[in-house]
């Protein structure tokens, strides 16, 4: 790794380590020996054009696709190859692309389902925190998820993932289909999450958005990391744009 955030010691156990992971879907190799690291308390963005492998990376970490080879460690604990629901329970919150809400269940049901594994006291605490973070959800508690606006749905998907009390949050293109103003309000919750000890791995197609929100970033192309570094540095690096344009 090129950079170490001074707030976190280099010797601390990283929140998430992805090591030489290869994932195939059918005959296609989507991730090709990909490695990255997320330190505790960091926000790291995975940048890449459409089809670069960002979603597959997040889904592989979440256990939805079993990796063909390589290791994935959550605070030093090996999680690759475990059933996906157990990975959720181990502390990986996933806000998948397309949000994957339950259209005919209420906002309150989503929060309850997300928090179903926590003891009642912790669940109540998490719920209160979510309603403070996303006040709009509090006004829609009885409403079905399918009737919410796009921004509200995205907030609900994030709140549902946070209700599982994760140590690492995977966010798959939360900006899709949202007005920039709403995206920024989603990103504004990151410092709060960081304070609560949640590390964030964000997959993002938009360079500007992805780099504003992050400490560090990786650029993925054809299932491999081609560039990495501090977000501010990468924002100046013309090679990032070149990768996007396939140069």
């Amino acid at each position: 790794m090129s950079e170490v955030d001074p707030r976190w010691g280099a010797d601390a156990v990283p929140a998430l380590v992805v090591e030489n992971v290869t994932t195939r879907i059918g005959p296609l190799t989507i991730l090709d020996g990909l490695s990255l690291e997320l330190r505790a308390g960091e926000v790291v963005t995975v940048l890449g054009a459409n089809g670069a492998g960002k979603t597959t990376l997040l889904r592989t970490i979440a256990g939805l696709y079993p990796p063909r080879q390589g290791h994935i460690r959550l605070f030093g604990e090996s999680i690759e190859g475990r059933p996906a629901h157990e990975i959720t329970r181990a502390g990986i919150g996933h806000v998948p692309s397309g949000r994957e809400l339950f259209p005919r269940l209420s906002v309150a049901d989503h929060l309850e389902l997300g928090g179903r594994l926590s003891p009642p006291a912790r669940r109540a605490e998490l719920r209160a925190r979510m309603l403070a973070m996303f006040p709009v959800l509090g006004r829609r508690l009885g409403q079905r998820a399918g009737t919410l606006s796009g921004g509200e749905q995205q907030m609900l998907a994030i709140a549902r993932a946070l209700m599982t009390d994760p140590r690492v949050l995977l966010l798959d293109e939360p900006s899709t289909g949202l007005a920039p103003k709403i995206v920024l309000s989603v990103f504004q919750t990151f410092p709060m999450l960081r304070e609560q000890g949640v590390s964030i791995l964000l997959a993002e197609q938009s360079l500007t958005l992805g780099l504003t929100a992050a400490d560090r970033a990786y650029v993925v192309d054809q299932g491999r990391i081609v560039l990495s570094g501090a977000a501010a540095q990468l924002a100046e690096d013309h090679r990032v744009v070149d990768t996007y344009l396939g140069r």
Binding site: A62, G63, L64, P83, A84, H85, E86, T88, R89, G93, H94, V95, P96, R99, E100, L101, F102, P103, R104, L105, D109, E112, L113, G114, R116, L117, R160, A161, M163, T164
Partner: peptide, 25 residues
Amino acid sequence: TDSGKSLLAASQSETGAICCGIDVK
């Protein structure tokens, strides 16, 4: 009930249910 709601959830989005730690199988 929790198990009943888990079933409704899994029927509406399998991935969403997994994201809640529900054993869809």
